[in-house]
Simulated assay, not measured.
Amino acid sequence: MITVAAIHTVFQKEALFTAIAEQYDIGLPLTSRFVSNGLNDTYDVVTDQGRYVLRIYKKHWRSEAEIRYELDLLLYLQSGGIPLSSPLARKDGELITYIASSEGTRYAVLFTYAEGIAIANAKTSVHYGRAAAQLHLAADGFVSSHERFQLDSVHLLNEPLKHLLPKLQHRPDDIRFVQEAAVRLKDRMNRLTLSDNDWGACHGDLHGWNVFHDEKVDGSLTHFDFDCCGAGWRAYDLSVYLWNLVHVRHDPEKFGDECWDAFLSAYVAERPLSQADLDAIPLFVAVRQLWLLGLHTGNSAVWGAWQDDGYFDGKLKFLKLWMEAYDL
């Protein structure tokens, strides 16, 4: 027999919620489900009092201070009337539960459940654009005493490349392309200024799958999953929705999208953008693509190293075509 350290523990969900229920006023757990082994572990639980979502942050993904920044932002936005999946306090008033695991202490937070389904069409994109504008308006005055990364060139480009480039050692032409692309994108980002471009607290992952709309109540939306939040350029926050709509397409003549047009029109009607911010959105679509490549390769030890040549072919093809189409 040998002993090998674990880098990620998956907890037995029934035992997990028996222990969690003792810490919160949520009633008796009836059913539970392990929903996702994603950036964090997500569980869905139904009790005799309602339905909740438990997030257990992965070890080395977010520090306690970074998590507390996220929770501060959520409570601040909630106090400003933004509909979102909010953190629930334990019986002792604490928001974070500490869980012992083989890889060390893990942090868990219980959230209210977001009802509805994901954004699906131009009509719901209008509601989403308006809601994103209201979110940014509400977040304008936010400050936190807890430190967290910023959505800047270090976080969005430098750090992802540390994970990506080693996975491209057998593709030297792509290494050169990625390095050159990162230099160009970073230079463009560093030209953005606080006088011309909007900077503030961002959701960080506004791709349309982190908001649910209630079909029974037209225009009713609930935001969730602020795990990628932080202070950053608001043009980046908006670009994520466009990126999600177009990044699987390899035809630059078809990069336009009616959902994006509806989203952006609704956003600027609620919260006008400078021309500099509008011009920066295509830049951040490319930045987001590089960030994604780093995210996938950086988590391969837990998610699996499925980033094969076919994966790189597709992801890098889009990046090249997008940068050419928008002269980046």
Rank of each mutant, 00 (worst) to 15 (best):
Ala5Arg: 11
Thr9Cys: 04
Thr9Ser: 12
Ala15Arg: 07
Leu16Pro: 06
Ala19Lys: 12
Gln23Ala: 15
Asp25Ser: 13
Ile26Pro: 13
Pro29Met: 02
Thr31Cys: 10
Ser36His: 12
Asn40Trp: 03
Thr47Val: 02
Thr47Cys: 07
Arg51Lys: 14
Tyr57Asp: 10
Lys58Gly: 13
His60Phe: 11
Arg62Trp: 13
Glu64Tyr: 05
Glu64Cys: 08
Leu71Ser: 05
Asp72Tyr: 02
Leu74Trp: 03
Leu74Ser: 05
Ala89Cys: 13
Ala89Thr: 12
Lys91Ser: 06
Gly93Pro: 04
Thr97His: 04
Ala100Ile: 00
Thr105Cys: 06
Leu110Ile: 04
Phe111His: 11
Thr112Lys: 08
Tyr113Gln: 10
Tyr113Leu: 11
Ala120Pro: 00
Tyr128Gly: 14
Ala131Lys: 10
Leu135Pro: 04
His136Lys: 09
His146Ala: 12
His146Asp: 08
Gln150Met: 11
Val154Tyr: 02
Leu164Gln: 06
Gln169Trp: 07
Asp174Ile: 01
Asp174Met: 11
Ile175His: 04
Phe177Cys: 09
Phe177Thr: 08
Glu180Thr: 15
Arg188Val: 10
Ser195Asp: 15
Asp198Trp: 05
Gly200Ile: 08
Gly204Val: 11
Gly208Ser: 08
Ser220Cys: 07
Leu221Gly: 02
Thr222Ser: 14
His223Tyr: 14
Cys229Ser: 14
Tyr236Ala: 01
Tyr236Leu: 05
Val240Phe: 09
His247Phe: 10
Arg249Ala: 00
His250Cys: 03
Cys259Val: 03
Asp261Ile: 01
Ala262Gly: 15
Ala266Pro: 08
Tyr267Gly: 05
Leu273Lys: 02
Pro282Trp: 01
Val285Tyr: 04
Val285Ile: 14
Ala286Glu: 01
Val287Leu: 06
Ser300Glu: 12
Val302Gly: 06
Gly304Gln: 12
Ala305Asn: 12
Phe312Tyr: 13
Asp313Ile: 05
Gly314Arg: 12
Leu316Glu: 05
Leu316Phe: 10
Phe318Ser: 09
Met323Leu: 11
Asp327Cys: 12
